[in-house]
């Protein structure tokens, strides 16, 4: 099965030089449950794991996954981790699980996943697998009865920019690139085998109200909102720090330009005088002069990411507050009856 799948994959990659864009991530219920179990058991520690599956046209199928042990910075353990990964893949292949890496999953706290690390990991994966995806699960939201599962990829234009390695204002303007264009969210589909579906139908409890309903009607969302606000404030601080960096840069830049102008002016008058006396004019540029050394422009990546996070927190606050309205009106209606 696995070899067949691989040859199928190879066939695809040979036949189509330009792969169709990734439209849907189809994930099996088994993988969803595994991700949730792993992320929840270790929360609030952030954990990661590998996704296994198949790449079929514009659909990326995630059929299984396995967790990574919690990482330490120790080098030895890192090598151990690589061994673990190989071993796990080998073992899973033996029981006919698709052993084709399609990406990784990770847990997050309140959706603050937009980090440089994630981008670096993604680029690493991207080198080996043409099409990969990152699935993000937020255990903190599960208590609100929300299934916070997201499939993300970096946009092609961002990857191009990242490979180029410069996030200067000029480049970004050229590409018409904004902070919203870093991540692309891919819609998730859930699929189950017929057998699983039969079992779940069989085992479904008869009660009309499920645990999810209880969670959703729970009226104390204050801690969640509080945490969100706290994160938002922190992000705003970071953002203003970044802004200050830019201001500092612009101030330096304009000062430098003024200096250059002054120097040029001086040189010109000097040249005029030299011309008058019949001497050779001096060159109008002097690379040895420190004022002509270009000041490096700070990267905009960080501020873009922070902006992304801020917008994410805003979205969450909006969502939860919106739900709270419904809850409040519900309680009100209950009371009036």
């Amino acid at each position: 099965m696995a070899t067949m799948a691989r040859s199928f994959l190879q066939a695809i990659s040979k036949d189509e030089a330009v792969a169709p864009p990734l439209r849907v991530v189809q994930i099996e219920g088994l993988a969803v449950l595994k991700i949730i179990k792993h992320c929840k058991e270790f929360a609030p520690t952030l954990v990661t794991g590998q996704l296994l599956g198949l790449d079929v046209g514009s659909v990326l199928e995630v059929t299984n996954c396995f967790p990574f042990p919690v990482r330490d910075d120790d080098e030895e353990i890192e090598a151990d981790g690589a061994n673990y990964q190989l071993e796990m893949m080998r073992c899973l292949r033996e029981v006919n699980v698709d052993n084709n890496t399609v990406g990784w999953y990770q847990s997050t706290v309140l959706g603050s996943y937009q980090t440089v690390e994630l981008i670096e990991t993604f680029m690493n994966y991207q080198e080996n697998i043409k099409r990969c995806v990152c699935i993000i699960y937020d255990p903190s939201k599960a208590d609100l009865g929300v299934l916070a599962l997201k499939a993300l990829k970096l946009s092609d234009s961002f990857m191009e920019l990242y490979r180029g390695g410069n996030f200067t204002g000029e480049k970004l303007r050229e590409k018409n690139f904004s902070w919203m264009d870093i991540f692309e969210e891919i819609p998730i589909k859930v699929s189950n085998s017929a057998l699983v579906s039969a079992f779940m139908t069989e085992l479904e409890t008869d009660t009309p109200v499920s645990q999810g309903d209880y969670d959703r009607l729970h009226s104390s969302t204050t801690p969640f909102l509080e945490n969100n606000m706290e994160f938002l404030i922190k992000c705003m601080d970071d953002l203003s720090m970044e802004q200050q960096k830019f201001q500092y840069y612009y101030r330096n830049l304009s000062r430098q330009q003024a200096q250059q102008q002054a120097w040029l002016q001086k040189r010109r008058t000097e040249n005029m005088a030299r011309k008058a006396t019949g001497e050779e004019p001096l060159p109008e540029e002097d690379p040895s002069n420190p004022i002509f050394k270009p000041i490096p422009e700070p990267s905009r990546l960080e501020s873009f990411l922070i902006t992304n996070q801020v917008s994410n927190f805003c979205g969450q606050i909006n969502g939860v507050a919106g739900q709270n309205f419904s809850r409040l009106y519900l309680t009100k209606a209950l009371h009036e009856n």
Binding site: N192, S193, M200, G212
Partner: peptide
Amino acid sequence: EAERLGFDLLKSTAVDKL
């Protein structure tokens, strides 16, 4: 846990969106 996820999600063979 399955209830948390929603049986609708786990019961059918294909769910188009979360």
